[in-house]
């Protein structure tokens, strides 16, 4: 999808750059004349086919409240100006109709902010199409996440851009969970930021990461590196742990049987449940904690280790 799309992107960009002026004027006219009422006719004017217009109509009407769809036309305009073709716009609205509730200025601001964060033309569009929800998130929360990634996790600006591009869902994740995941991979698995970004760590859930890692660790195939980053065995790469399907992981990486992993997942889920009962929900280390230091030397339960500054 990625590779083949690029040239067509450029093409549609060029086409729509000229077209967008028209659509903008059309929509401003239509919004003047037809007021906020959305008609199939106006949609087909914008270049949607009849069936696309119908589907679009359906997804918008799924929103509750009469005022909800107030910004449909402006949203569509913004998306067209961004350089998306009617097909992807229709798909996008279908995926995330909430986008029609966002004001035009806010949308513009958010897109502008993403550009500022380093998402270049092309990857910006791909990110938006892949994860339209990112435009429903206020600039302020995106800023928060970015600041968190930069300061708490010490990713470089370049790396933050890559994270946003490859796993835009981070903007909606709970920061505590995010920090826990980062610290788990950083300290327990001994993996540096660059590798995390390369393996698209933030695409995976904490459960997935931990289950696969603990399985390997208990089988004696993964060791936490010591202070100097040394281990007595060669750890498998993060890439080969996460970016493979379950069968490949079990057979090639863990050298186990599917039955074993199946049982193990269930056992581990229970262990976590008990752990949460004991410690409250999982939480990453805060810098100004008072009384939680180091009760589990092996870090088997609740990740608690101080990050060196």
């Amino acid at each position: 999808m990625n590779g083949s799309h690029l040239p067509s992107w450029c093409l549609s960009c060029r086409l729509l750059c000229s077209a967008s002026d028209q659509t903008a004027s059309v929509s401003s006219q239509s919004s003047l004349r037809l007021s906020p009422v959305l008609s199939l006719h106006s949609l087909s004017d914008m270049g949607f086919t009849e069936s696309q217009a119908g589907q679009l109509f359906d997804s918008v009407s799924r929103l509750k409240g009469a005022s909800a769809a107030k910004h449909v036309l402006s949203t569509l305009t913004v998306l067209f100006v961004l350089g998306l073709n009617p097909t992807s716009v229709q798909k996008l609205i279908d995926k995330c109709p909430e986008l029609c509730m966002v004001k035009e200025t806010q949308l513009q601001q958010r897109i502008q902010h993403l550009r500022k964060l380093g998402l270049v033309e092309g990857s910006l569009q791909r990110t938006v199409v892949h994860y339209p929800k990112i435009l429903t998130v206020p600039v302020k929360s995106v800023k928060n996440v970015v600041q968190f990634l930069r300061e708490k996790c010490q990713f470089t600006t370049q790396q933050v851009t890559e994270i946003l591009r490859d796993s835009p869902a981070v903007v909606l994740e709970d920061l505590d969970q995010l920090e826990y995941k980062f610290q788990y991979v950083y300290f327990r698995m001994g993996i540096k930021q660059a590798e995390m970004v390369k393996c698209r760590l933030f695409r995976f859930t904490m459960e997935d990461v931990r289950c696969r890692h603990v399985f390997l660790e208990r089988r004696g195939l993964y060791q936490t590196p010591d202070k100097k980053g040394q281990t007595t065995i060669i750890n498998p790469k993060l890439d080969s742990i996460l970016n493979v399907d379950q069968h490949t992981f079990i057979v090639d990486v863990a050298q186990a049987s599917a039955e074993e992993y199946d049982v193990f997942q269930k056992l581990l889920a229970r262990e976590w449940k008990e752990e949460e009962l004991e410690h409250g929900s999982i939480e990453a280390d805060s810098d100004e904690e008072e009384d939680d230091e180091g009760e589990e030397p092996d870090g088997k339960s609740g990740y608690k280790k101080k990050k060196k500054r």
Partner: peptide
């Protein structure tokens, strides 16, 4: 690991689990 060979990882994970 020397005594049980290939069986050891399976035994190890079982011993360390519930």
């Amino acid at each position: 690991s020397a005594q049980l060979g290939d069986l050891w990882p399976s035994v190890r994970v079982a011993l360390l689990s519930e």
